[in-house]
Design a protein around this nucleic acid. Structure first.
Lengths: 266, 266
DNA sequence: TGACGTCATTGATGCAGGTCAATTGTATAT
DNA sequence: ATATACAATTGACCTGCATCAATGACGTCA
C-alpha cells in the first residue's frame, strides 16, 4: 500500500471493472491488444471479492486452474521446505501475474498469501490459452510476460548469489521503488506491506540483519524509516549502495555510464 | 559429457537430423506433438556445426532472434556485473532450451558459452511463434517449458537463499544426476564439464569451498572424485545431505524428516 | 486501561565460509 | 624434456552475518 500520487479511489463495490477501463492494463498486458480483443479477454476474467490480509489465494499443491492478476493490495508467494520453514519467493504488486510457475506441472509449487486486503482478477488458464490461439498478440504477450518472469528470477539469483547484505537490501528497495513508479505511485515514499522477517527471508538474510541495515541506512541519511513507512531521501546513493546499474526508475538520465567504479561520490 | 549407458554415436557429419529422429525429442518437447506437426517444426530448425569449447553461442546484449536447443555437449549461461565479474546462471545439457529469457526485451540478458564441443539446434523464434499459432499443442508446450524454467529458477532461489554450502553442493550433484538419468546417461557416474570455479559461482560459494566439500564428501564415502570425473557412491546419503526431498531419481523413500538439525553425524 | 501477542530494535557472541597464499597436478606448446 | 599456464587442492586467518537473548513499541481485545 504505497502512498497514492493521484487519487485513484477503488471502491470495494464495483467489483466489475472491465479490462479496458482498468488502469493496470498496460502493466498487465504491456502492448499489442486491440480494444475489441480486450473485451474478449475481459469476458473470461472473473473478479472475486477482496482477499483479507493473511488469507491464501492458493496453497502449495493446489491444482492449477487459473492465473491471477493483482488489482490492488499485495501478496507474497512462498515455498515450504520439508521441515516446515518457509522461503519467500516474491512479493506481488498490482498489475502482476501470479501462478505462471504452475502451468508446467498442473499444481502450484508455491503458496500465495495476501499481505493486506487484496483484490484479484482470476483468469481461467484454459480459456486464456484457447483465446490465445485466436489472438496471436495475446499469445505473444503471454510469452513475453513469462520471459520477463524468467529474467527477473535470474536477477534475483545474482542478488542471492553474490551480493552483500547491504547490497541486497538496497537493491530490494530500489526495485520496489521502480515498481511503484510504473504503477503511478510515489518513487520516494511507500509503505512496506511485508514484515522484516519476510524481507529477510526473501533476501536470504536474518530479520535482525534487515532491521540493523534499516537503521544504518537511516543514520547515513539514505532514507527514513518509521515502522512500515519508508521514505527514500537519497535514492541516488542508495543505488550506488546496491552495487547495480539501477537502470529504469526516476527520470534522471545524466548519461553517467563509463564510470562503473562507484568512486564513492557520496 | 557423462559416460554413456547406451552407445548412441552422434557423428559430426550428419548435421541434418530430423526432429522426429532425434533422441531428445521427449525432453525437448515432452508431449503432444504429432508426427506430421513434427516435420513442420523440423522445417524451421537450423542445425549449425558444433561449437568448440569456449566459444560463445551468444553474448550479453546480442539481439534475440532464436531459441537454442542443446543437442550434445553443454554450455553455461552467465551475466556480468558492471565491475566485470561474472555470475553463472545455469548449466545446460542436451535437450534443454536456451534463450527464453530474451523474448521479453528482444536482447539476451545472459551470455552462453560452450563448456565443451557442443552442437545446437537453432530455432528462429519468429517462425516458432507463427507455427505456434497454427499448432495449439506446440504453443502449449512452449508455455509449459517456460513455466518449468520459472519453477526451476525458484528452486535455485531456495538453494541460494537458505541452504548451507554442503547442502548446495549436494543438491547440485543430485540435480545433475537426475538430469543425466532423463537423458539416458548413468546416474552414478559422470564428468563435470564445468570448472570448480563455475560450480562455486553458480552456487554462490568460493571455489575453495567447493573443492573442500568434494574432498569431504569423498572422505565420508559419499562419492569419488577424480578431477572432472564424479562417481556417486552413496546417492542415498547424498540426498539426505542435500536437505531436500530428492523426488525424481532413484527410488528411495525413507521418510526421515524431523531431524533438521544436522546434528554433526559426520 | 491493562494484559497479551506480535513485530521491531539493539546488543553480545560464535562460526561458516570467504579471502589470501602456497603447493601440486594437468595440459598444451616448444 | 622443459617451460608455461591454468585448475585444483590445502592450510591459515579473519570477517560478515547468523544466532541467541533481552527490551521496547504497537495494536487488539476484554
Amino acid at each position: 500500500m504505497p502512498t497514492r500520487k493521484l487519487e485513484k479511489v477503488v471502491s470495494l463495490k464495483d467489483i466489475r471493472v472491465a479490462c479496458r477501463e482498468c488502469s493496470l492494463i498496460e502493466i498487465c498486458l504491456p502492448v499489442g491488444i486491440g480494444q475489441s480483443d480486450l473485451d474478449r479477454l475481459d469476458s473470461i476474467i472473473d473478479r472475486k471479492r477482496p482477499l483479507p490480509r493473511g488469507d491464501h489465494l492458493f496453497r502449495i499443491g493446489d491444482p492449477f486452474q487459473c492465473l491471477y492478476a493483482v488489482r490492488s493490495g499485495s501478496l507474497k508467494t512462498y515455498a515450504t521446505s520439508e521441515d516446515g520453514q518457509e522461503q519467500v519467493m516474491g512479493f506481488h504488486l498490482p498489475g502482476e501475474l501470479i501462478g505462471l510457475d504452475a502451468i508446467a506441472e498442473g499444481d502450484h509449487p508455491l503458496a500465495a498469501k495476501a499481505l493486506e486486503t487484496t483484490s484479484i482478477c482470476e483468469i481461467p488458464f484454459h480459456d486464456l490459452e484457447s483465446l490465445g490461439t485466436q489472438l496471436p498478440s495475446l499469445q505473444h504477450q503471454l510469452l513475453r510476460i513469462m520471459s520477463k518472469e524468467i529474467r527477473d528470477d535470474e536477477h534475483n539469483m545474482v542478488i542471492l548469489g553474490q551480493k552483500s547484505a547491504e547490497e541486497r537490501l538496497a537493491s530490494f528497495l530500489i526495485s520496489l521503488s521502480n515498481r511503484f513508479i510504473r504503477r503511478g505511485f510515489s518513487a520516494h515514499q511507500f509503505n512496506l506491506s511485508m514484515s522484516r522477517s519476510d524481507i529477510g527471508n526473501y533476501l536470504g538474510l536474518a530479520l535482525e540483519t534487515v532491521s540493523r541495515l534499516f537503521t544504518r541506512f537511516q543514520n547515513e541519511g539514505l532514507l527514513r524509516v518509521d515502522r512500515k513507512h519508508i521514505e527514500l531521501i537519497d535514492r541516488e546513493r542508495l543505488c550506488v549502495f546496491s552495487g547495480a546499474r539501477c537502470s529504469h526508475g526516476t527520470p534522471k538520465q545524466h548519461s553517467q555510464h563509463s564510470q562503473h567504479r562507484p568512486s564513492k561520490d557520496q
